[in-house]
Design a binder for these strands. Structure first.
Lengths: 231, 231
DNA sequence: GCATATTTGTCCGTATGTATA
DNA sequence: CTATACATACGGACAAATATG
């Protein structure tokens, strides 16, 4: 059975690019994954994908490797590659590291350049606008951008990369549980409050708010996970 | 001209393994790099390596990709792969993240299992023993193990992986400047002191000591870098 | 539990494009 | 500018592992 995301992938033929084809293919797949068209646990058969994107198996395998490094795919030896399924343990670890990096971002706020703080506010506004228009998927995207901007206050390229990968994984978690509105709506106001506390310079309160935010979100997701596992 | 590390690589044929050949090849190369036989900036020509290790280009490229993800190699499109050269900027970023992760480790010490603290002390002892025997390369290894154990107190697999990669890069830095004794000797006593402060439960003092340790090490390495650049 | 079909792991030869002496 | 060396990408081959009936 030829599935829908395969056709969409085949349709999205990019124009010639200056970078490697493997990187381009990886980009296509990444988009399918973060947009939720390729669901966690789905298997990616080499041959089908090669036909769909019209690249050789070697190139496809190179693209697989890239995405496996980003933890979006898992490579099971002699079995194939699958869209990553985030376990409850991995989820806890994800939040452990988010707490470390994002709280550090809050503490670095005074030393951050104004553009970095502006991006934080822009993300809050984007989220509020998207919510007003009922575009709940975009609310989720804005939320991710907000937390990315938070960690970016550290001013470290490495931290930027870490948080980018972390939040890409968070998308996997969201897709595994659906109902974006229910999950993201309550956090809109909290992002706003967190931003305002930081703008006011009350970093201690901001960090407390952030910690409680992350605790709540983790608890909510973990609860949903346990319920899903029961199926 | 056939260089020495190529022969050593060819000699180190491992017994059959259950994992992928690419992973095994990556392991071989990693060893050559962290041991300093492959120096930063060195070029790794595909063909020569394939002949030396007797694997196909595809497999070799897969190994390259793994090591590039660990930042030990850099892949320049259409030019080849090279052993990474850590720039002064990258060095500063390296220490920025080390400060974040290792200080977090200190703060997590009370919640860490006894084995984790034991590994910290073991690394201190290993360093002292190696120094007593004049094995300065081993002193460096013990130092890296010490800081790895420090970050491991966080109890997060992800943090473990991050610090492992970070410290592997630190090895690149060390190799680019030689004289292991001069650099590592003064830090032996500081590792001991840091450990003792933590054992005593004085976390605030421990964190202060760690920060000053990292500041000093960074300053020393940066200074050496500037001097090297003058060549 | 077995035989078969499918898929992956690995290798090779080759054509094309890119960088550098 | 030409020549050479090398990287990129393709497609086919075969063994080994896995999934399927």
């Amino acid at each position: 059975m030829r599935e829908r995301w395969l056709d969409e992938l085949a349709a999205a033929r990019p124009g010639l690019d200056r970078s490697s084809t493997a990187a381009r293919v990886a980009g296509l797949l990444r988009e399918q994954i973060t947009d939720g068209r390729l669901v966690p646990g789905a298997r990616l058969p080499e041959e089908d994908l090669c036909r769909a994107v019209k690249v050789s198996r070697n190139t496809m395998r190179e693209a697989f490797r890239m995405l496996a490094q980003e933890r979006l795919l898992v490579h099971e030896f002699n079995r194939g590659v699958f869209v990553r399924r985030v376990t409850a343990d991995a989820l806890a670890d994800l939040y452990r590291v988010r707490r470390i990096l994002e709280c550090e971002g809050v503490r670095c706020a005074p030393d951050a350049p104004p553009e970095a703080l502006a991006r934080l506010e822009a993300a809050v506004l984007d989220g509020e606008r998207a919510a007003g228009a009922g575009r709940w998927a975009d609310v989720g995207t804005a939320d991710i951008r907000f937390h990315q901007a938070l960690a970016a206050l550290v001013g470290s390229p490495r931290v930027d990369e870490m948080i980018r990968h972390l939040l890409a994984e968070m998308r996997l978690v969201f897709h595994e549980m659906g109902s974006p509105r229910e999950f993201h709506e309550p956090y809109l106001a909290r992002n706003r409050r967190l931003h305002d506390l930081m703008a006011r310079g009350d970093l201690a309160a901001a960090e407390r708010e952030l910690r409680s935010y992350l605790d709540d979100a983790e608890a909510q997701l973990t609860k949903a996970y346990r319920e899903n596992e029961r199926l």
